[in-house]
């Protein structure tokens, strides 16, 4: 290979730079998002679908809910276990509302100091900003 030594050395330096963040953080525990305690977590067995499904797919489910309710007039969701739920963000915040004063888990989470909403703890961690609450009422508005 023509000037092989330089090329290989350059490649090694390049790969080292590229993987630097991974090596730098190796062995350090990732704190992860602070999940706030739910208002009614004690008697809460499961969300509308299993927690693993919700973690991965809640955004698609919310989009399906929105289209079903607003466009097709289908306002009841029957989940994979045959249990039915009212399609409404209030169905979510009924359980997923944090009680900031009682919340000790999220004390070190700046998101929870400015907001009372469940979603922000993970969404701030993942740097994804949901726009739901610019129109819909948050947990404080859950009356139904």
């Amino acid at each position: 290979m023509y000037k092989g030594g330089k090329i290989i050395a350059g490649l090694i330096i390049f790969v080292a730079f590229l993987t630097f963040p991974f090596f730098y953080n190796m062995g350090k525990a990732n704190a992860g998002p602070d999940l706030p305690t739910y208002a009614s977590s004690a008697n809460l067995q499961q969300c509308v679908e299993p927690a693993e499904y919700m973690k991965a797919n809640h955004m698609q489910l919310l989009n399906q809910w929105r289209n079903a309710d607003v466009r097709d007039g289908q306002s009841i969701y029957i989940n994979s276990q045959g249990k039915s739920f009212d399609i409404s963000l209030e169905s979510c915040v009924e359980c997923h509302s944090t009680q900031a004063t009682k919340n000790t888990v999220g004390v070190n989470n700046p998101a929870l100091k400015t907001s009372d909403q469940f979603c922000v703890s993970c969404h701030n961690y993942a740097s994804v900003e949901p726009t739901c609450w610019s129109c819909h009422s948050g947990p404080e508005g859950a009356t139904k």
Partner: peptide, 15 residues
């Protein structure tokens, strides 16, 4: 394909 849960939708019974 994995996104679709085995779920159904129906209109409100109070409609």
């Amino acid at each position: 394909g994995a996104v679709e849960a085995a779920a159904e939708y129906e209109p409100s019974k109070k409609g």
